[in-house]
Nucleic acid binder design. Structure first.
Length: 583
RNA sequence: GGGGCUGUAGCUCAGCUGGUUAGAGUGCCGGACUGUCACUCCGGAGGUCGCGGGUUCGAGCCCCGUCAGCCCCGCCA
């Protein structure tokens, strides 16, 4: 039906007779003469309709067109006169002189505009989600989904080239009482029994290693029934991979290859290898396990400089096991009181008692923090004129999140420019366990199959909090792109971990039996990784929400406004599934 | 589960201290117009002020509740 796409026509096509199909973006009817901006996924082209050339009732058809109607156009590509060109359009040097125009898909007046005027805002997101087909016609979203397609193809090609096999795993799986809440699917043939949708293919991919598939990957859909955010959807896509006979470094090489290729596909050149940062170091220097390394500013420890002239609450906090930690922001002493109060509010929201601040002027240190921190400390710090010092006192569990929040805000202030555009890093040596504040017991920081660090086996019993995991995160500009680990394949070690976590044998068998049996059947050492693909697509598309890189996303209440899911079902359908509802 | 913001014409928004018939831009409909490209000009239609209750002589505006969307905290092995 078509000979070309609208958006593809160029001056080199002049003279050709073309057949186009597309959506009426806008029309300009000048009376005897009319113009149509015709749109398809490649872009816009102007169609001119002139009674001298148009056949039959074509002029009448054109003058009756409404926006978003689908038409077929036949005509000749002609070069526009120099004064008639439109430099804002990729096709602006040419237009199509129509001989016939046929309506093939009449359209109701769109509920939300697809063609927008300069400066027009987008319709409310609720409406954009409800009328998703219209919103998806917008060139911006079409560009995002095109990029997403290219990234997916790129990932497949790179993984495949490295010898990884794409193997699909079940969507109907066994509920895992660990981790996030499962989406459950009732069984019709087994009354009272349920499948779960996978939170990730974790166990299956380990079993594939046991089964000898060596190198596996999957563009895997995952499901978690938890509350949502701008960067979190109930169903999401991972680039999931696992490999046998590998070290932590081997896995990281593979992941770096994928990330370099994806960024390349989006037009960015990034350098390898990515720098490594130990978890403890990341927390010390940035207060967070996913630091934004585009900015050089770091947290420093001022505790050794605290002297007797510091305020009592500062000295008391140090005696109680706290530290004074601070950000030293160059060229920020001109910050207004309002701006600093904003930082203080962030620190308090993160749990700090308050924020101490001082400005280094030519005359010396000034500001509220000079009393609290004491003159001796500030003298020892020295500092360059123009420096703004922002300090927090307390335990690391308080000062780290507080200073991370302040640092994030400070890096967004107008004068701050990133020292690099793409800051990747590996964060390694995470703790294997973390303390559950409610029960006071050790819980796995990730999943219970993550192998401890070889050097720390000795501390498993004596100091579990000190044991490092062979777990690693890929971090980009302050975003966690994914995480992975080397898995436990030694049954004795696995039993020890379960015992430390207080999981009795009977429960181990019930919950993880099919994995444990698998590992007992001859398991190669293995490890893997999972990249959050939606988030990567979002970052590379320059979008601020996952909803802008998904064709049919859910709202923050996990509703699909377009199709209207979830929904009630007929009592008979519930009965067939042996279900009753309670409210 | 908790906090914040928003909800007025198809869309984007204004609406004063609670007071006559709720406005603008755009879109839509009708008319004019042969080189426009956010065409222009003339005319017209279009409202459950999210929903429910309350206060008041009187509520788009105040109060209570509720629904929806967005952002954040908790949560997300």
């Amino acid at each position: 039906m078509r000979s070309h796409r609208c958006g593809s026509l160029r001056i080199s096509d002049a003279g050709k007779t073309v057949r186009l199909g597309g959506w009426v973006h806008r029309t300009r009817d000048l009376g005897g003469l009319a113009f149509i901006d015709l749109r398809d996924r490649d872009g816009l082209v102007q169609v001119s309709c002139d009674p001298a050339r148009a056949a039959g009732d074509t002029m009448a058809v054109v003058q009756g067109l409404t926006p978003e109607t689908v038409i077929l156009v036949e005509g000749e590509v002609v070069v526009r006169p120099p004064e008639g060109r439109n430099p804002e359009l990729a096709t602006g040097d040419v237009e199509v002189r129509a001989t016939t125009v046929r309506v093939v898909g009449p359209a109701t007046i769109p509920a939300i505009p697809v063609a927008r005027n300069r400066g027009d805002k987008l319709a409310a997101e609720e409406l954009r989600l409800k009328h998703r087909v219209l919103d998806l016609r917008r060139p911006e979203l079409q560009a995002n989904l095109l990029l997403r397609h290219r990234l997916l193809q790129c990932a497949r090609q790179v993984m495949s080239a490295m010898g990884f096999l794409e193997i699909e795993t079940p969507i109907l799986t066994k509920p895992t009482p660990e981790g996030a809440r499962d989406y459950l699917v009732p069984s019709r043939v087994h009354p009272g029994e349920f499948y779960a949708l996978p939170q990730s293919p974790q166990i299956y991919k380990q079993l594939l290693m046991v089964a000898g598939y060596d190198r596996y990957f999957q563009i895997a859909r995952c499901f978690r029934d938890e509350d949502l955010r701008a960067d979190r959807q109930p169903e999401f896509t991972q680039i999931d991979l696992e490999a046998s006979f590998v070290s932590q470094d081997d896995v990281q090489q593979v992941v770096e290859s994928v990330l370099v290729a994806l960024w390349q596909e989006a037009g960015h050149t990034i350098a390898r290898p990515f720098p490594h940062l130990k978890w403890r170091e990341a927390m010390e220097r940035f207060g967070i396990d996913k630091p934004d390394l585009r900015f050089d500013i770091e947290i420093s420890d001022l505790t050794p400089q605290v002297a007797d002239d510091a305020a009592p609450f500062v000295r008391d906090a140090i005696v109680a096991g706290g530290r004074v930690r601070a950000l030293r922001v160059p060229n920020a002493a001109e910050a207004s009181r309002k701006e600093i109060d904003g930082y203080a509010a962030l620190a308090k929201d993160a749990g700090a008692g308050g924020l101490m601040w001082a400005k280094r002027t030519d005359a010396g240190w000034e500001g509220q923090g000079t009393k609290a921190l004491g003159a001796e400390l500030l003298a020892a710090v020295g500092g360059a004129p123009g420096e703004l010092l922002l300090a927090v006192v307390g335990r690391d569990t308080v000062t780290s999140p507080a200073l991370h929040a302040v640092r994030s805000a400070v890096t967004r202030r107008p004068g701050m420019t990133p020292t690099r555009e793409h800051a990747f890093c590996w964060v390694v040596d995470f703790p294997l366990f973390e303390l559950d504040p409610e029960s006071g017991t050790h819980v796995p920081a990730h999943h219970p199959f993550t192998s401890p660090h070889h050097d720390d086996f000795g501390f498993l019993e004596s100091e579990p909090g000190r044991v490092r995991a062979q777990h690693y995160d890929a971090v980009y500009n302050g975003n966690e792109l994914g995480s992975g680990s080397i898995r436990i394949t030694n049954p004795v070690l696995q039993a020890t971990i379960f015992r430390l976590l207080g999981i009795p044998e009977e429960e181990q068998a019930r919950r993880f039996g099919f994995l444990l049996d698998g590992l007992a059947a001859g398991a190669p050492p293995h490890g893997g990784f999972a990249l959050g693909f939606d988030r990567i697509a979002m970052l590379l598309a320059g979008a601020t929400s996952l909803r802008d890189v998904l064709a049919f996303p859910k709202t923050t209440a996990a509703r699909a406004l377009f199709e209207g899911a979830p929904t009630t079902v007929k009592p008979a359908d519930l009965a067939a599934l042996h279900l009753t509802t309670t409210d």
